[in-house]
Design a protein around this nucleic acid. Structure first.
Lengths: 223, 223
DNA sequence: ACCTGAACACCGTTCAAGT
DNA sequence: ACCTGAACACCGTTCAAGT
């Protein structure tokens, strides 16, 4: 009796796509914590071992999920080229913020799907529009995406775990109470070092990155 | 009979310090994978629950371990200020490279111990020496350390897990086989986008970061 | 070639009960 | 105030055996 197994809506033809689709569904419904090999196997009426034919490990699975979510990130149409970079990366970070923990995986296993490629393409286009030499832009996109991903990874953990804010506070306390004689520079900027909203800091960070990328020759350029 | 328990060399007086010391020892002997609450409890002849009085969670424990390892990072004495920044961050990344996985934790829970403060102080001093305005330097150290940490997190995972290189290859393959009509910019820089040694890229990244930090006014500076 | 159950070797964190 | 055993609720990954 082949139809005796539990019925599910639309069992997909391609296992890899089916696994990723199930993973996205579980992510949306219950969060990244539940996007595990075992849980997904359960969802697909199989054993966890079966998934390893299509997915190398958990990080790779998460990368595929992220790529899927990136489908919701559209290229901005308004503003100057650098404003659009800021908006685009803001959207990217937004996706990561909405699903805490995914950013952490993304640092280890980068997505390599269509949506991630589209993001890189858009970024390269904006940098070209801004007159950034292609060789610098090529290395620059890496820097920009790494920055956006790392920012999300930091912020996401703090947002999810209520006690993780303590680490932040611990650093703040440590900086504030630093010995002015032993750490003069730290003491001098104690107020400034953690000032500003996350948004303001991220916008500044992207601006600094763009300036640096545009103005720093890559080794190949030098004679 | 109070001495009936298994003997260990030098049981430390302060539990928190004792936990961190044991964690460093286990890290050195067996790697970060074994630096778990349960394993540490075993090492200290107690139950895992007891550790939670002194350490909030596993990430915080890892952050404390990293701070300890940072004691081996000395301020460079030779070269120009920006060369010394490169050397200093290189040492920091080196510590993280030697213990894969620690960088990942560090992104979520930043260290806040003496050695991390010393690193920030040295960095601030170098930026001041380079004529970077204090307000930009204050935000800049964050950018520099985040970059160094994220770089280590990426590279470390690839180095540890033999199949993680596949993700890299997967992205490389995807970029190389990108449709030239749909992704013209990507196609144009396909060769350049992943060229260069990690060292060359990191040095370029730091140079770009420094240029951006030095040249980008923070919001407070604007009237 | 693919799929599976079962096993291996573990986790983090909480909590009631003790001292 | 601190410490503990035990419990809760899980993990990732491998592998021999099947189909």
């Amino acid at each position: 009796v082949p139809t005796s197994r539990r019925e599910r809506p639309a069992k997909p033809a391609l296992p890899r796509d089916g696994i990723v689709a199930a993973a996205v569904a579980v992510l949306r419904a219950e969060g990244l914590d539940k996007v595990t090999m075992r849980r997904l196997a359960q969802e697909l009426d199989t054993g966890a071992a079966s998934l390893y034919v299509y997915v190398a490990n958990t990080d790779e699975l998460h990368a595929a999920v992220l790529d899927e979510l990136l489908g919701g990130v559209a290229a901005p149409r308004e503003g100057s080229w650098d404003e659009r970079v800021d908006t685009l990366l803001g959207s990217y970070v937004g996706v990561l913020f909405a699903h805490p923990g995914l950013a952490r995986s993304a640092l280890s296993a980068r997505p390599s799907g269509e949506h991630y490629l589209a993001l890189i393409e858009t970024l390269l286009g904006l940098l070209a529009e801004g007159g950034v030499p292609a060789a610098r832009a090529a290395w620059g996109v890496d820097l920009l995406l790494q920055y956006a991903t790392a920012t999300a990874a930091e912020h996401a953990t703090r947002a999810r775990n209520p006690t993780a804010g303590d680490d932040w506070d611990a650093l703040t306390r440590a900086i504030r109470s630093a010995d002015p004689a032993a750490r003069p520079h730290l003491h001098a900027v104690a107020g400034a070092i953690q000032s500003g909203t996350p948004q303001a800091r991220t916008t500044w960070g992207i601006a600094a990155l763009l300036r640096g990328i545009a103005g720093t020759p890559v080794p190949e350029e030098r004679p």
